[in-house]
Every structure is written in C-alpha cells, then in structure tokens.
Design a protein around this nucleic acid. Structure first.
Length: 153
DNA sequence: GCCAACGTTGGC
DNA sequence: GCCAACGTTGGC
C-alpha cells in the first residue's frame, strides 16, 4: 500500500465536489502529464491513500483524504471533442491517457502550504519544492503519518 | 499580474 | 537528437 498527493484546482473540482458525488467517487480525469500518468498506470493500487490538495487558489493546501477505488483505465475525456482534455492523437484502440477512480474518505481541516512548510519533517515533500508542477506525487509513510497527526492535532 | 520552473513542440 | 521557443503551472 502506497501514499500519494493529488492536486486539483478547487474552482474546477474541490473536495466538496467529491463529497457530493454518488458514493463520493469520481474518475480523476484530465491528467495530461506522462509522469503522473505512469504513477497511475504502474504504481497505484486499490486501497492506496491520497491527500486531496487544493492548488492555484486563495488557500492552497491539503483539504481531504481519499482512497484509490479503481485502478487505471482509459480517460474518457481524451475521446470527447467537446472536452478541454480532448486529444486528437488518442484512439480507443490506442488510448494515451488514463485515470483512476478516487473515493473520499473524509474532509479534513485545511492544512495550508505554509503550515506544511513550517515542519522540517516535511521538507523533502515534492509539493513544497520550488517550481513543482507535478499533479500526482508519492508521499512517504513517515510523511503520511506526520500529516495525519497534524490533521488530528 | 508576475515570474520561475519545467514539459512539450518542432525546425534543423 | 539538440535546443530554442512556447505554453502551462502555481505560489506569491
């Protein structure tokens, strides 16, 4: 079992949006970065735990905990010409992009990026590195446990 | 709105 | 296969 952090702009899709979905479950679609796709394809398993991170917003930070409820399968939006995620080079026979399904475990208090930065135990988190743009990053077990302890504090 | 970082594209 | 140009991300 692994731990992850996945970013979303809350204007587009927030933790409250996920909470409102049937079964609190949604495909995590629209990933158009190969490294992030490969994490989903190669490393994510059912039951893996994920921090839901709000980015590009007034209060960036961790806002919830999710779990992976379905492993990677082709992202429908790549075939949809009306979608902003449409990819003309993708075909059903040869899909380029994948998504997993995520299910909300719980909303958390917002752990802001400033709070995350204030803890030396978290200094090596990829999300805190300058210029980090990767929307899916692995989290170590120690980092996971530490952040969970912050949530409960 | 600024700007640093970095992935992608395309000409050669 | 190199690398400059360009586009996007995301914190501030």
């Amino acid at each position: 079992m692994k731990y992850w952090l996945m970013k979303s702009e809350p204007d587009a899709f927030s933790v409250d949006d996920l909470a409102a979905r049937p079964k609190k479950t949604e495909p995590w679609d629209g990933i158009r970065n190969y490294q992030a796709r490969n994490f989903m394809r190669d490393d994510m398993k059912r039951g893996d735990l994920v921090f839901f991170y709000h980015s590009s917003c007034p209060q960036p930070g961790i806002a919830g905990i999710m779990k992976i409820s379905k492993t990677a399968y082709p992202d429908e939006t790549q075939f949809d010409e009306s979608s902003k995620y449409y990819d003309p080079k993708a075909t059903r026979a040869n899909p380029r992009w994948l998504n997993v399904d995520v299910t909300l475990v719980k909303k958390t208090r917002l752990i802001g990026i400033q709070e995350l930065r204030s803890h030396p135990q978290l200094a090596s988190m990829q999300i805190l590195r300058r210029g980090n743009r990767l929307s899916i990053t692995p989290i170590s077990e120690a980092e996971w446990q530490f952040i969970v302890s912050l949530i409960d504090a």
